[in-house]
Amino acid sequence: MTYKLQFGELLPYMGVLFEGLLFTVVLTLISTVAGVGLGIGGAAARTFGPPWAGRVFVIYVELIRNTPFIVQLFFIYFGLPALGLKLSESQAAFLAMTINLGAYSTEIIRAGVEAVPKGHIEAGVSLAMTKWEVFAHIILKQALQKIWPALSSQIIIVMLGSSVVSQISAEDLTYAANFVQSRNFRAFEAYFAVALAYLGLAIVMRAMLRGIGRLMFPGH
């Protein structure tokens, strides 16, 4: 007997799926802003900060980049309460996403900072700007412009990786899919529809990030 696909069975659960989608979008949005902010700070520390701060960020970046996101999430959600830091599943999800993207964007933005010609830094210093003024007014924008495509694809990778937060019961899109298939037993339909939703989200985000890049760095 062959199985007949019944996508109609998903219709009563559109509300649940939409709420999940909303959570995934908000989670991605907030952790992108926080993560890129952390990345800018990390890149500044690694290139202009004191040596000890640079070293702290090297260790942070390597630890995060060389361990799976799901383990980081479990460590934060299950491991940290043992140290007295108890987080709700949403808080843990936001924190883990931010820490994860922070590490990758530190590395990406640092590469951009190092690609800025030395003359620009010297020119800034000769205008009596401090190190941090040079970083904020001269280097940062050029650096971000250079690495914007790489940063954009990392943000999308992190968005896709966010599906893992369903494993600590944060109610994202994947959690919604699990919920739906546990109710109507249409596993393939639920996961397929949600996979397509992620695909759509990835395509929309890519277009939006490209648009933001054009707005922030006109002429390129």
Binding site: T2, Y3, V194, A195, L196, Y198
Partner: peptide, 24 residues
């Protein structure tokens, strides 16, 4: 490539693990 790069790996795992079982 677009499909496998644009959807979460977790979703691909679920699709194969739960989805294929439905087809016997």
């Amino acid at each position: 490539i677009e499909f496998f790069q644009g959807t979460p790996l977790l979703m691909q795992l679920f699709l194969l693990f739960f989805g294929l079982a439905l087809f016997g």
